[in-house]
Design a protein around this nucleic acid. Sequence first.
DNA 1: GGAATCCACGGTGG
DNA 2: TCCACCGTGGATTC
Length: 219
Amino acid sequence: MGVLVQESLLDLDEQPALGTLDGVAAEGPGQSGEVRRTPLARGAWVDVRPGWLAGSGEVFARLMETVPWRAERRHMYDKVVDVPRLLCFYAEDAPLPDPMLTAARQALNSHYRDELGEEFRTAGLCLYRDGRDSVAWHGDRFGRGRDHDTMVAILSLGTPRALALRPRGGGPSMRFELGHGDLLVMGGSCQRTWDHAIPKAPKITSPRISVQFRPLGVR
DNA sequence: GGAATCCACGGTGG
DNA sequence: TCCACCGTGGATTC
């Protein structure tokens, strides 16, 4: 396994999050503790904060246990196929399945509220059971209007998986390795001008959970 | 030669 | 009504 090794070094109660991402952070060995922003083409950017969430191992275990994971099926051409991951969506006013996720969302809002111009409200959880699970290239789009920038914050728990990004319409792709407790935020025009995916990784045999925080109206 | 990437397929839901 | 969306597997490229 080797998945649940990194435990929390900081407690939320000792370090309430107030306008900084550091509140929920655990300083992993050798980690900078800084949010690193990577500018992409066309006004998109990605923030990466390794080892962000304290107590990731316990949160991961609780989510595996308590979230009512749902399998979905969809028509793809001539057959019905399983969606290659398990899902659970928490709408704006639904209580999140773990207090650490509520705290994480608060910390994200403290840090990004001004830049985002609104708040992260919904949470979409995905369980990638092993490397055969994946998600194809897509952008998280708006129900309303397509000329409006937004952000999607992704908290990754469990087995590290690559998140791939490439310009919409084609172009060289880049990869971010998302490890246990890592945070990645896509912002600027990223959801309009870039696609992202979690590629299949057949050698991986253990699970990863991703938590995606979004403002209202972003799918 | 193995791995990563590309491509085409069409029913569904917004 | 219309169009963007998305998983698979075979082909192609790296």
